[in-house]
Design a protein around this nucleic acid. Structure first.
Lengths: 131, 131
DNA sequence: CTTTCTGCAAACTCTTTGCACTCGT
DNA sequence: ACGAGTGCAAAGAGTTTGCAGAAAG
């Protein structure tokens, strides 16, 4: 029940934090292996999942690409380059849309935008109250 | 080079359009099979992919879940229920965030929001111009 | 007739899991 | 010493692909 502090868990967290470049599980595995050459993919996935449950990292899923792990845990937005697949964090000052202006001014080409809200639909919200 | 009109292609498009409930590939397969019992999964995926390239449908990818196929092709947002995994289209009137008010008033519980911008980063934008 | 599309099955990618062993606490 | 964590290898889900034959133009 208690979460233990292991070499592997620490190394995985550091690999995500090291460069905040949204590494894939594969990249995390490669980075960690430089320090712990005997770590297994399974352990990397298990620890990434554990860190996510503890809200120490976030997962960014994108169409048809492996998941990327994000060191920035507060709510924020992303820019995905369709050229090189890079993922960048966007800082939102207030409640308004970020990016549109700032990004264009910085040489980015914006093609489309996707907003997804997560929560409970009315029916599930009722069940949650009752249960 | 030319895209041919086959029974299978038509049936796949209809299966997505029939009920606009964002079916998974599995669900599309099941629906199409009622009419064309010998269609294969491979053909369903190939046709879904073809329709997406022709901008006749869209793909909605969500964390750790199979892709869902969307009959609404213009830019719009989604609500994902964390209870039952249902995906719903959100209509945005103007440029502002949709949902927040309307959804809550309709009994939805909003937990978080994810915005992703897609385009080209400055470096890739330069390459595209040159190339 | 030519070329695209199909069904089938096998392959592929990413991720998860069962097991016996190891190591924090 | 107890039990959570590990490495390994195998399984799993979802999707893609090579091939020989079918069918659209």
């Amino acid at each position: 029940m208690t979460v233990r502090t292991t070499r592997q868990l620490g190394a995985v967290l550091e690999a995500v934090n090291l460069r905040r470049d949204h590494p894939t599980a594969q990249e995390v595995y490669a980075r960690v292996r430089q320090r712990l050459p005997r770590i297994s993919r399974g352990t990397v996935y298990r620890n990434l999942s554990k860190l996510q449950q503890q809200r120490q990292i976030r997962i960014v899923r994108l169409a048809g690409r492996p998941a990327r792990y994000d060191a920035v845990v507060h709510e924020h937005d992303h820019f995905v380059c369709e050229g090189c697949s890079a993922v960048e964090d966007l800082v939102t000052g207030n409640g308004r849309h970020p990016g549109a202006v700032d990004l264009r001014a910085s040489g980015y080409v914006l093609r489309r935008r996707s907003i997804t809200y997560f929560g409970l639909c009315p029916r599930c919200a009722l069940c949650a109250k009752e249960g």
